[in-house]
């Protein structure tokens, strides 16, 4: 049986399959349930300084090969979320706190409170594609990415990951900024900026019009981004985007990711998907004679 454990920026994970931010992470009890379903780590919903209701419904529309959402970073604010983190601490896996904010100062303050509440790492949301003045609004500018990462790194002791956006000309620019600012790792990709229009009503389906596309449609985009990032930066990469199965995860690992995140698949395969993807990775590694997850990381770059 292949060794499924991985180490990433000093975090020991029992397996490389994490819950992606934005999915099932608004409440501590859901984070615990995802851990029980087999995830190697769980990432919270992105948390801001104040309570935020997000956009009115519809906030989600299902398409043929994916889902577009514009929830609008709904969250109860860090003060209330600390109670959810107390519940989440019952999970037997690392809890990673996702943070969004308008400035490096605001994000640092939230990160400090997250660390005090016991998270094992911070993930900076520099990539939400549908909210004003936060997320990708910061993440599209590599200089801002660098200053946010530097500021948060100085504020906390736990590892700091930056989740970056594919909605730029070259995703490598932001990744270099993360690496040069001593960020501990990169999470890629966030959703792809997208829209769907209802022909019968002549309106976009979502109240916000534009949203972020997730699900099977974006897997090839994510895999390409991780492949490019692996050639450009030396810090660890966590791959995310459209992973439904173990083989999907293996594409990301072979492109160069040390771990992966799974989100929308909880719709396609139910909450049990986390354990299933882990099993499928293990079966694949055994069948093809690999001894550990690490044996496949980045092998798509090897010259034949």
């Amino acid at each position: 049986m292949a060794d499924l454990s991985v180490e990433i920026a000093g975090l020991r994970l029992r397996n490389p399959v994490m819950l992606a931010s934005g999915i099932l992470g608004e409440t501590g009890s859901s984070l615990v349930r995802v851990a029980e379903a087999g995830a190697g780590a769980v990432v919270t919903k992105s948390i801001g300084a104040e309570p935020r209701e997000g956009y009115p419904n519809p906030t989600v529309v299902e398409l043929e090969a994916g889902i577009i959402n514009a929830v609008g970073l709904a969250n109860p604010g860090i003060a209330a979320y600390v109670d959810e983190l107390k519940v989440a601490a019952q999970a037997e896996v690392p809890v990673i706190g996702s943070v969004f904010g308008k400035s490096e100062g605001e994000m640092s303050e939230i990160a400090i409170l997250m660390e005090e509440a016991g998270v094992s790492a911070i993930e900076l949301n520099l990539s939400c594609p549908h909210a004003r003045n936060v997320g990708a609004e910061l993440g599209k500018d590599p200089e801002t990415v660098g200053s946010v990462v530097s500021a948060v790194k100085k504020s906390v002791h736990v590892p700091v990951f930056a989740k970056i956006t594919p909605n730029v000309t070259d995703i490598v620019d932001a990744a270099l900024a993360v690496a040069n600012s001593r960020g501990d790792g990169i999470v890629a990709i966030n959703t792809v900026k997208a829209m769907a229009i209802c022909p019968e009503t002549g309106r976009p389906f979502l109240s916000n019009g534009i949203g972020g596309l997730s699900g099977p449609a974006i897997k090839p985009i994510g895999v390409r981004c991780v492949y490019e990032l692996y050639e450009s930066v030396d810090i660890p990469i966590v791959g995310v985007g459209g992973i439904l199965t173990g083989k999907d995860a293996l594409e990301y690992l072979m492109a160069g990711a040390k771990a992966v995140q799974v989100g929308s698949a909880a719709y396609y395969r139910g909450i049990e998907v986390f354990g299933r993807v882990v099993e499928e990775i293990g079966q694949f590694l055994d069948e093809y004679g690999y001894e550990s997850v690490g044996d496949v990381v980045g092998i798509a770059h090897d010259e034949n």
Partner: peptide
């Protein structure tokens, strides 16, 4: 919000 088990808005004790 989603109606399909991913957004966590209708979270009820982990269900």
């Amino acid at each position: 919000r989603c109606g399909m088990g991913i957004c966590d808005s209708c979270s009820f004790g982990g269900l």
